[in-house]
């Protein structure tokens, strides 16, 4: 992997050159919360953010999108608007990059999803270092460092960013900016290693995922699922903000006075009362406890069986977004019988 370094003071210059690779979107702040948005000017970018309300998933699987239009006169017309738009996501954290790699497994293998894959091709990812806060547990989920899934990754070493070049497009960006980048020195490497090990010590949350699927199997009838069902609001906040939740609903929207319409795809959540409702009125997960239990089992048990790793990256969004304080780390530690002081 090609690694260079970029002076922090020249980041705005770098960002201005990067514009030629697509519309630059970065985390911006609104009333103390962050969200990825198109930048009007580089000064809006807040690369020191903790986490965005919605993960970058919204760029690849939008909350609502038209899949195709159907018209009596012209038949089926695939919707392509915005699909080919080139976007540069500037400042994506390692956990969110891991989450995209997980979504690649779901949408990019077996049944290929052309909408997701086209966007994945057209959206450039520039990763950036972060500092764990009280909700972060990406280290426990093995998602605190990204090895793949980015075009460039910027690692903070003080006055400079070590810039890891992940793809040919990343290399094109470096080449396009020419003299902004310089060679990495021995002292940069020493500083990188020091910061890397320091970061590992800053996590306040911890959980063990080894043999977790087995523990989930053993605890299928545990009381905790009923307790969580009583508390859970079924509001779906946890899955709306989850970087790896990918359930969606598909509906036809008909135009008034015709047989023409659009087929749309919308985010769905297994927490919603109607998620497992089928024709005839049967509901396979009628109770809240069965729904929240399903969400935990799918992430930590089912996904491991199918893809070899949990579909949780420890970003902490669900902990922050739950109105009634349901905390995944607390739940898992309780299932394990491990009390952890900082999980409440």
């Amino acid at each position: 992997m090609k690694i260079l370094k970029l002076e922090k003071g020249k980041l705005d210059l770098f960002a201005s050159v990067v514009q030629q690779f697509g519309e630059v979107h970065a985390p911006t702040e609104h009333e103390g919360k962050f969200s990825f948005k198109r930048l009007n000017s580089w000064s809006e970018a807040r690369l020191d953010y903790n986490r965005t309300v919605l993960p970058p998933r919204k760029y690849f699987l939008p909350p609502r999108e038209t899949l195709f239009k159907y018209r009596e006169a012209t038949g089926y017309v695939p919707a392509t608007e915005d699909l080919e738009k080139r976007v540069v996501l500037f400042g994506v954290h390692a956990c969110d990059i891991h989450a995209l790699n997980i979504l690649d497994e779901v949408f990019g293998k077996g049944y290929l999803d052309p909408y997701y894959l086209t966007r994945r091709k057209n959206i450039t990812i520039i990763g950036i270092d972060c500092t764990p806060d009280e909700h972060c547990f990406c280290r426990s989920m093995r998602a605190d460092f990204a090895e793949t899934g980015f075009d460039l990754f910027l690692k903070d070493i003080g006055d400079h960013y070590l810039t890891f070049v992940g793809t040919a497009r990343g290399d094109d960006m470096v080449i396009a900016t020419g003299p902004l980048f310089s060679e990495v020195t021995h002292s940069d490497i020493v500083e990188y290693k020091r910061r890397s090990s320091q970061k590992c010590d800053t996590f306040k949350l911890d959980l063990e995922i080894r043999d977790l699927p087995e523990i989930f199997e053993l605890e299928y009838q545990a009381d905790i699922w009923e307790e969580l069902g009583e508390k859970c609001l079924s509001c779906g906040n946890c899955s709306m903000v989850c970087p790896t939740c990918y359930c969606y609903d598909v509906a036809d929207e008909v135009k008034l006075g015709s047989h023409d319409g659009d087929r749309v795809r919308l985010w769905d959540s297994c927490l919603f009362a109607t998620h497992a409702l089928v024709a005839g009125g049967e509901n396979f997960r009628k109770t809240r406890s069965s729904r929240i239990k399903f969400r935990f089992y799918h992430k930590q048990r089912g996904f491991v069986a199918e893809y070899g790793r949990p579909s949780c990256v420890g970003c902490g969004r669900c902990i922050e977004a739950c109105p009634v304080g349901i905390n995944i780390v607390g739940v898992i530690n309780r299932l394990r019988g491990v009390e952890h002081a900082s999980t409440d």
């Binding site: 103390g32 965005t52 779906g236 906040n237 509906a251 985010w267 959540s269 919603f272 109105p323």
Partner: peptide, 21 residues
Amino acid sequence: IAPTTPVCAECKMREYNCLLT
């Protein structure tokens, strides 16, 4: 096709600040 999901879902989709949390 009637809406079946709570207001929260649409609130989060628009990244509004949560008045409950």
